[in-house]
């Protein structure tokens, strides 16, 4: 039983690690903010959720300690992380951070111009 549990834990943690490392590489290597934010918010969220699940399982299965806080944490991360990433990118765009030159599509630009016009702001 313990071995099985251990395997499970190790699996989740390893998976999580992979995601985390990937997102870190993404943050380092990707060309502009938006792509990096993408890497940060998606991949790392998945990573951390995996790891936390592993930790949770460790305490539950091996230590026989059911810890609701971790579950709550996972839930919380699940809700907030993407929102955070979204808000961040959006704000940066409004603040004038230029996308990568290779960007193909930019839907926000006309929208913002329309709003500016509406509120008579230059």
């Amino acid at each position: 039983m313990t071995i099985l549990a251990n395997i499970l834990v190790v699996f989740f943690i390893a998976a999580g690690l992979v995601f985390i490392v990937v997102s870190a590489i993404g943050l380092l290597r990707l060309p502009d903010l938006y792509t990096r934010a993408h890497a940060a918010s998606k991949s790392s969220t998945l990573g951390v959720m995996c790891i936390l699940l592993g930790v949770f399982l460790h305490f539950w299965l091996i230590r026989d300690h059911f810890n609701p806080t971790i579950l709550l944490g996972i839930l919380f991360l699940f809700i907030t992380s993407p929102v955070g990433g979204h808000i961040m990118s959006r704000s940066s765009y409004i603040a004038g951070v230029k996308p990568w030159s290779g960007t193909v599509r930019d839907d926000l630009k006309p929208e913002i111009e329309r709003m500016k016009k509406e509120q008579k702001i230059k």
Binding site: L27, A40, S44, G47, I51, G73, L77, G85
Partner: peptide, 12 residues
């Protein structure tokens, strides 16, 4: 963004 990700890493 990097700081945010550090936060995530910290959680891990």
């Amino acid at each position: 963004v990097a700081l945010d990700t550090i936060g995530v890493a910290l959680i891990c």
